[in-house]
Design a binder for these strands. Structure first.
Lengths: 228, 228
DNA sequence: CGCGGCTTTGATGTTCATCAAGTAAAGTGG
DNA sequence: CCACTTTACTTGATGAACATCAAAGCCGCG
């Protein structure tokens, strides 16, 4: 028979390699759905009932929340191998946040019932799941605390460093979010984000051309992030 | 033989009632340690290695983080039946935050190795664990987002309502935190927290006498919390 | 009694949101 | 393809929200 899932670097797949017996593994592979999303397309809407466990295979997404006044807050940026079903999955029948693609993206989706069954039957899988969820949520919480300590300039620097270090692994990149979205990540207004970016440019910390950003003086940017 | 753990309302205990066999259950009960803490005593210090899974049996605690500049940020308030080992336990070998008692408290502590073994062996237990951890961390994240949307007055109202509704279930209570700690929960300065409390008092929303607080106009306080 | 920490209030200045107005970029329909 | 509309971006000016500084009162503790 052999394994049908071909996604080599999938974390879920490596979790399955605890001692999932082959019949279950085949069932998972059969029930697995891949979905493709265009840039800006919605993947999950707040309030929607949780049917599938969603995993990001390719692309980049934002997890966010809409307030009554229409204002949006970005909770996290998800990259390949991250669980999109970060919050809510095991704590609520419905999503408490929304997810949208920032780049063309591909998800891998598995019915939650199967994931639940696997947790019940396979201890190694359960343990891997707990660890992965913990790491994800812990990172979100610690990041929130980190950002909260900083002022405008530090927060903007923080976001720029996040994209360089955690997403693109390069000093030059096309930033996948609008100025307004940067503001929603750090809890400031888009005007002030723009002003700060202009200052950074004037101070020769960055080169900016629309969405194209090149970090020129990373050391100083890190200093600002840590407190400037 | 029978069950030796006598804590009737313990969530861990109810998790064990999946289908934990009796020998394991007895082992857990044997290895269980109870520790008592005085008010203000430290329960966990950041950086400490995680040996035990800690559960709050009695009292009230704060989970917090110390920054390099000596400033502290409070992550959450833990009440009985809450997991003190909220973050880190399954994601890191060492604690990334500190815990201290706000009231005389009693913890129940179980070696993490035993919890790990149980997760591996018992699916129901694993599932319960995942759900409990998810609920806890999700609540923290959503609370952070909620607070971030609000201004000073709304944030102070938020904290007061938290203590009335979630901790004391009463309109009158002795607040277990200092003004400075309220500030550390909501990310403001203690001076401004005090000023706001004084305003609330002048506006007949509250009666305040030191740490003794009585909420007089809860409706208006809720309105302020939701945005004022 | 006196010292130090927590609390309170007032005065001042900084940081940031809001408002306004204009430019550039990108999608829309004829 | 070009006028048209809309949306994102940018800069400046103003005011509100909040931090900081300063000083005094309170309380518990050695």
């Amino acid at each position: 028979m052999g394994v049908k899932c071909t996604c080599e670097h999938c974390d879920l797949r490596s979790l399955f390699f605890g001692h999932v017996n082959e019949s279950i593994l085949n069932k998972v592979c059969e029930m697995r759905i891949e979905r493709e999303f265009q840039k800006y397309e919605s993947i999950i809407s707040e309030g929607q009932s949780i049917e599938h466990f969603i995993y990001l295979k390719k692309g980049l997404v934002k997890l966010y929340r809409l307030a009554d006044d229409g204002k949006s807050q970005i909770i996290a940026i998800g990259k390949p191998l991250d669980f999109v079903s970060l919050l809510s999955v095991f704590s609520d029948p419905a999503y408490k946040y929304s997810v949208a693609a920032l780049e063309p993206s591909v998800t891998c989706e598995i019915p939650v019932s199967i994931i639940r069954d696997l947790v019940l039957v396979n201890g190694t899988f359960a343990m891997g799941m707990i660890q992965k969820i913990s790491k994800t949520t812990d990172a979100v919480i610690l990041d929130f605390l980190d950002i909260r300590r900083k002022h405008l300039r530090g927060r903007v620097a923080h976001v720029l460093l996040f994209f360089t270090d955690s997403i693109y692994h390069s000093l030059e990149f096309e930033i996948p979010v609008s100025r307004k979205e940067i503001a929603e990540i750090i809890g400031m207004t888009s005007e002030n984000v723009i002003r700060t970016l202009s200052e950074f440019k004037k101070d020769n910390l960055l080169k900016i051309n629309g969405k194209q950003i090149q970090i020129v003086d990373k050391d100083r940017l890190q200093a600002i992030s840590q407190h400037g």
